[in-house]
Design a protein around this nucleic acid. Sequence first.
DNA 1: ACAGAATAGTTAAGCGCGTTAACCTTTGGG
DNA 2: CCCAAAGGTTAACGCGCTTAACTATTCTGT
Lengths: 153, 153
Amino acid sequence: MGRAVSPPTLHDDARRLLELLHGMISSAFRPVLWKRALELELNYAQAQVLFFIQRHPGCLASDVARAYAVTLPAISQVVDRLAEKHFLVRTEDPRDRRAARLRLTRAGDALARELEGAQVEGLAALLGRLSADERRTVLAGLDALVSAAVRES
Amino acid sequence: MGRAVSPPTLHDDARRLLELLHGMISSAFRPVLWKRALELELNYAQAQVLFFIQRHPGCLASDVARAYAVTLPAISQVVDRLAEKHFLVRTEDPRDRRAARLRLTRAGDALARELEGAQVEGLAALLGRLSADERRTVLAGLDALVSAAVRES
DNA sequence: ACAGAATAGTTAAGCGCGTTAACCTTTGGG
DNA sequence: CCCAAAGGTTAACGCGCTTAACTATTCTGT
């Protein structure tokens, strides 16, 4: 007496996607991407700021604050901690004496590279368990999702 | 003189995946899933605990702690805050007088439903911008990735 | 040229989440 | 019957985040 199988509705797909996203956060993102960061001396927020400064050398604290949508004092504090550990320095801008240009030290740059390398390796190990076809699907699917989210905003 | 195009290596794919994951967190996960939670009176940790108790009525604080891999005092504290807001109650277990069984109040249950509904709607809106084919790819890709991550552990 | 607004940043106070350490009560096993 | 294990709370502390208040510098409009 098999009831006719109806195709999944948008709502069904959304429910399934919600589950998958939670699974991804808990079983892929956290353990694969951030285990190494915690082993080294960085927590999530500090690592994010480190990466941003690596990609934007000489940026301002306010740039970082805007990028992560947090307030300036929050960044100021994280920068303090990273500076205490000698992973970055505040350098002065001769053109604008209010500004503090942020730059990684050699140690900070090395740490950021090491951390990103570990993340890429972790993901590569994950992808290595998939067929080439599945890998294409993974990337295509995520790309479509992120594109849609970006268009939304 | 077009150089021959070589297929992407595992490492290339991993780099691309890392970018996509960050994009997903910043442009899909945070705004779509958690905007509503913050508008209502819950932050991330509180919402997680609320959802867990909804799915496991009568569970122990230690169950929640195990599920999220945090310590018991952390949960005890979050439960305090949720109880202050009357979203849950600690009920006693006649069989084990040490235990505090956690249950949502009607208000807590309604809030959890409302929040999950908002999350599903947000994702449905996102998926609605994709073709049926793209939707299948999104779900299949994420499923493959999460499965691989789960097998890993 | 100068007063006032905007910008860049810090400091202080306060909340929430996370930790470890110390403690209490209850349960269960030898 | 005693002692270890389990469930939980409290206290103290670190970190990230917020708002409010403040300094210093730069920009702008008249």
